[in-house]
Amino acid sequence: MRLWLAVREVFARDIVVTLRRSTEVLTPLVFFVIVVSLFPLGIGPEAPLLRTMGPGILWVAALLASMLSLNRLFAADYADGSLEQIALAPQPLSLLALSKVAAHWTLTGLPLSLLAPLLALQLDLSGRAITMLVISLLLGTPVLSLIGAIGAALTLGIRGGGVLVSLLVLPLYTPVLIFGAQTVSGVATGASPAADFALLGAFLAFAISLAPWAIAAALRVSLD
């Protein structure tokens, strides 16, 4: 019971604190919108071209946007010392870290997934493709947050940590990107997305069960 209370407390606190600095929530979203809008300017406005590239563009942009916000995941708590308090708490750090990641996802991955249909319309994606996009983002972005949190925890308090995170985390994002974008691009070719969704779900289950341990271990090393 106490455990559940602590997990909920960390989650609620992170949400409240982050919402108070609303630019932190908005920046990744605005970044997402701008990046997606830049692509037609770069590759040309032809609808068929945009339709084929759309799934990849949206997924890569969402991935970069969620990565952009990784730094704030532990940095503020690290700076003011509350992260050490959390680490000293009697509850397992892995679970508390998981609830911090959940809070992070609620304020980045979730709004990104909900914003995506709007941008998908700009790229002329079909209704079915947009549905696939939202579902795949909802399944995939939590994995991105979980993997990203490992990188954020490892680079805590390191000079140049922000750029370093992207170097550590982006190669690990590839499976999610591949299958996430495939669910959407498969619509055009008529491929069934069942296998892709099953794999995304498997990645999510795998990441939820293993990443918290790695995050907790990384936090402990960084706090030492």
Partner: peptide, 23 residues
């Protein structure tokens, strides 16, 4: 220690990445 964690995360992910890229 930090790089050890990264290497362990990497080795767990390499088969997944390999499989994904193959697919």
């Amino acid at each position: 220690q930090s790089s050890a964690i990264l290497a362990m995360v990497g080795i767990v992910n390499i088969p997944i990445i390999h499989f994904s890229v193959d697919w």
